[in-house]
């Protein structure tokens, strides 16, 4: 066994870099670019990362990173401050508590679980918006964002495959 493999996994590799990638992706998709006259969709890039972090292992830094991403999205998208932090932390907590159920599931079932986590995040957003503005958001618009976010599961799968077994202390 090499000395690098025997070391623990550095947080910046499985937390820092994905967080920066999410921030960059969200910013790029917030640019006013139209492709063939159509605006880009607005997926929640943070959800695959939050899902994967909760599944890979319990961590004290991960929820803080989820909150930072959420606050960043609020500042970028102009939503109430703390809105996306709460919407992301809720599925993170649910997945964190369900790790024993999720262990050993097939990829398809994990995708279904990820869809449920996305639904929980957007459902919480729907509820908060309704309470904040006394007006129900458009369900069709919520559905489109759900669709654009659900197709991002391969990114979560890649993170899980890459880091689930990467730390020798958790083998």
């Amino acid at each position: 066994m090499s000395s690098a493999a025997a070391r623990g996994l550095a947080p910046w590799r499985w937390l820092g870099l994905p967080m920066l990638a999410v921030m960059a992706g969200a910013f790029l998709f917030a640019l006013p670019i139209r492709v063939f006259g159509v605006s880009l969709p607005e997926p929640v890039f943070a959800l695959p990362v939050a899902f994967a972090w909760a599944y890979i292992r319990p961590s004290m830094l991960a929820p803080i990173c989820v909150m930072i991403i959420g606050l960043y999205q609020d500042l970028l998208w102009g939503s109430p401050l703390g809105f996306w932090a709460v919407c992301l932390l809720l599925p993170y907590g649910v997945v964190l508590g369900s790790r024993s159920i999720l262990a050993g599931q097939s990829r398809l079932m994990m995708w279904v679980w990820y869809g449920a986590a996305t639904l929980l995040a957007l459902g919480a957003g729907y509820l908060f918006t309704m309470l904040n503005s006394q007006n129900a958001p458009d369900a069709v618009a919520v559905f489109w964002q759900f669709l654009a976010t659900v197709v991002l599961y391969p990114f979560a799968d890649r993170l899980i495959e890459r880091f689930e077994d990467a730390d020798v202390r958790f083998r």
Binding site: P32, S39, E42, F83, P137, V142
Partner: peptide, 15 residues
């Protein structure tokens, strides 16, 4: 000039 925009269901704003 508009430099960023959000198009999600919960916030529609531009910078």
């Amino acid at each position: 000039r508009i430099v960023t925009e959000s198009r999600g269901p919960f916030a529609h704003s531009r910078l």
